[in-house]
Design a protein around this nucleic acid. Sequence first.
DNA 1: GGGTAATCCATCAGGAGAGG
DNA 2: CCTCTCCTGATGGATTACCC
Length: 261
Amino acid sequence: MSSIDHFNLWSFDLNLLVAFDALMREHSVTRAATRLKIKQSAMSHNLSTLRMLLDDELFIRVGQVMKPTPRALALALPIARLLEQAQHAITTREAFHPEQEARTFSIGFSSELEVLLMPSLTAQVQSYAPGIKLLARPAQPEEVHRMLDDGVIDLAIGCFGDGAERHRRKLLFEQSLTCCFNPKLLDLTVPISQSAYLAQRHALVSQNASIRGCLEYAMRTANVEVDVVMAAPEFLTVLSTVMSTPVITTLPTRIANCYGP
DNA sequence: GGGTAATCCATCAGGAGAGG
DNA sequence: CCTCTCCTGATGGATTACCC
């Protein structure tokens, strides 16, 4: 088995291999930069450093694409395998035995999922892993990835953005939306037409500074406006408002089915 | 003209070394 | 051991060059 030349590896920033792999996959400096969530100029610097260290052009611009040189093609597979092995070595842990574990997991939730999932999750964890405790933490979409990076939470459950490549994601279920209103206060025919929906005054769940909350993107996409008169981060506040005020709200169907009027 | 790569320059973080 | 200063490298914004 050959020995590792630590001195040479120390002088070679191994992140450059990640940059090379991204360039190999994208054949574009700009797209490779986007893939690694850095700017194009930083990726261009990485490429120039790689060119200097490996003494080869590596990628030659041909029209709109960066064509790999024979040297780059020869390096592609070994580097990809190396990165795969490195990732495997870093992420693989000893077998997890929930029944023997004694620790607290912090889970970042969006508010509606916390109330939906925590009761059954706690019951299941208590059944299979009595030594494990669960700590629910509020998690806003704009800060959830930083909370994961800082170790504030171990896991996040909710409707969040993609984050970085290191953030693993799994789809739990597709979310649908349902309208809720108090029929004693609002005279609406079900199913509600789009024009009737847009004509109402609305109460919404909002986790951020926008009063349009989770509907902001949908409204912009559909190029429509609704009259939002109230927004709050907790869905129970919104549902209580709907019960006492002639407003309509749009909530995740699971919440509406559990707690709706 | 639009898209993309390369380059220049400013900023920031981290490390090394000097001095108290 | 701690603090300060300087140096180095990474990064991003702005700009330029190049290609279709």
